[in-house]
Computed example of a mutant assay.
Amino acid sequence: MTKLISIVTPLFNEEENVDDLCSRIAAVMASLPYDYEHLCIDNCSKDRTVALLRARAARDPKLKVIVNARNFGHIRSPYHALLQAAGDAVVVIAGDLQDPPEMIPEFIKKWEDGFKTVMAVKPESEESSLIFFVRKIYYKIINRISEVPLIDNATGAGLFDRDVIEILRSIADPYPYTRGLVCEIGYPIATVPFKQPRRTRGVTSQNFYTLYDIAMLGITKHSKLPLRLMAMLGFALAIVSLLAAFGYLLAKLLFWDKFQFGTAPILIGMFLFGAIQMLFLGMLGEYIASIQTQVRKLPLVVESERINF
């Protein structure tokens, strides 16, 4: 029996890319000895993305579409689509064409070689050099503090075997850091390096908040080190403060008339400790927010429509 490959594409306001994306995926899959389905999930686009998908699905039975009832964010919507795929292997490809569909044969080749997880990585990119540098630093930091080795410069595109999908489905994480979760599973991971092209059409939905959200998700899901650093640094600051207090007391006793305490050390100390407390409270809040998301047990998304299922 011919194996089925599921191609999963999350979309939001991609009317300028969706036709080209579907055509390129269809052309790639036509050259491979596999049956396939192309599953697009639309995160409540405000443009003509859904209309274009509906028209194309009317003449292409391999194109399946999920339309969300509202925008459920950049984490939940793609993950929901991943779990709906029926293939023996599931390939995730971004809708902005920055993950070229022509990488799919390379993913499948690694899968045929026995790898259950294949991830696209970008050692080079045509995006902003500043953003690319910040991403590289982030991956180096999170790899140092993570309890499991993560893949540097992973884009989120890649291939996941049916066994991996079943494990993800059993975990039932309502807000996962997918790139880290597949590393937690423990199967060997193959990588496919590529130079990421610049987006040529449309406007990215990524902004500072979404990038920050992904960054904090990676830290809170896969490392307890920040929490332990808070305790250790708090203890160290308490010791330093005690030593400073004894030093000032000794200086005052020895030079009673000449030594003036002054307001500058008080103000500096207050602002320093205030800033550290705010930093610690913010990081602690990220962990609490992650716990709250887990215990609420909300669905990943609510669908308003399915096409070609």
Score class of each variant (00 low, 15 high):
I151M: 08
S146W: 06
V182P: 01
G158C: 07
V164G: 07
C183I: 06
I151Y: 04
T178M: 02
I165C: 00
T178V: 03
I171G: 00
D161S: 08
L150C: 05
R144E: 15
R169L: 06
L159A: 04
N153D: 15
G156E: 09
N143D: 09
T155R: 11
N153Y: 15
D173M: 06
I185P: 09
V148C: 10
A157Q: 15
Y177E: 02
A157H: 12
G180W: 07
T155N: 14
Y177I: 00
I185C: 10
I165P: 01
L181A: 02
A157G: 13
I165V: 06
D173A: 05
T155K: 13
G158V: 03
I165G: 00
I145Q: 10
V164D: 06
T178R: 01
E184T: 03
D161R: 07
T155W: 11
T155Y: 12
R162C: 05
E166M: 05
V148P: 12
I185S: 13
P176I: 01
E166K: 02
G158F: 01
S146D: 10
T178N: 03
P176Y: 02
Y175N: 03
V164I: 12
I145L: 11
P176S: 06
V164A: 09
P149S: 13
D173P: 05
G180Q: 08
E147Q: 12
L168Q: 02
R144G: 14
L168T: 00
E184L: 06
F160S: 03
L150E: 03
T178I: 03
V164N: 09
V148E: 09
A172Q: 12
E147V: 07
R169H: 10
R162F: 07
R144N: 15
C183Y: 06
